[in-house]
Amino acid sequence: MTAPFDIAHAGSANKGSDAPATPRNVPNRGGAPNPSAADLKAKFGTAIRRVDVVWGETNVYVAPEAALDIIRWLHDDASQQYDYLVDVTAVEYRDLEQPIEVVWHLRSLPYRRFLRVKAQLTKNRPLEIPSVWSIYKSADWLERECFDMFGITFVGHPDLRRILMWEQYREGFPLRKDFPLRGRFSRAEQLRQALAANPEARYSMEELTIADAFEDLPTDMRQRLRGGERTGE
């Protein structure tokens, strides 16, 4: 039997001089920016607010409303091909005056490039940003997590629910700086809520529409669900 798969030598040092190497002595500021940054500036003009290079990685600050178009162009354009969304997350600074940043880490597998796209959201307005789910399916859970932890609404996400915290969680958004480390509620209140929760009610509305599951619920829960409650509490 022949080997049922290829052993690839991708990027191996044996394969010529274009192989990537471990970065050394990376400067704090400056250095060669990712070539995509200049392309973005030429293409989108003022929607690209700022470009800087920190520790060898290029940060591109974009206007929040243009973020979707910019990322779609980065994904679709043949000269960019950022086909891999590594991460979607947000940063809130300790200085509460500073805006919250939504951060996309993008990789171009064909060109072996890494780009960090950032959009700043001021806090005096609702935290909303377009979802990139329509471009990358990997954004599904990453955006849900970001919503869960920071309360940023990703407009256009098909199923923006909490993911790590449970749906009945009422204490707010844990990774925000105004959220205390021990939680907003007292231990006694947290315990009371945990004990009062109905473990049978841990199904989302979407699941309850499946088949006869709805009919199997206790009567009181069915009534409350008909009344518009998302899940039992």
Binding site: I7, A10, P20, A21, T22
Partner: peptide, 26 residues
């Protein structure tokens, strides 16, 4: 079938100088 391995594509700790292969399925 995608030959993407961080050790090869964005190497760290001189992984590019080690001789090893990346298995890729079909």
């Amino acid at each position: 079938g995608v030959a993407y391995d961080v050790r090869k594509d964005f190497p760290y700790y001189d992984y590019e100088t080690y001789d090893f292969d990346v298995p890729v399925g079909t």
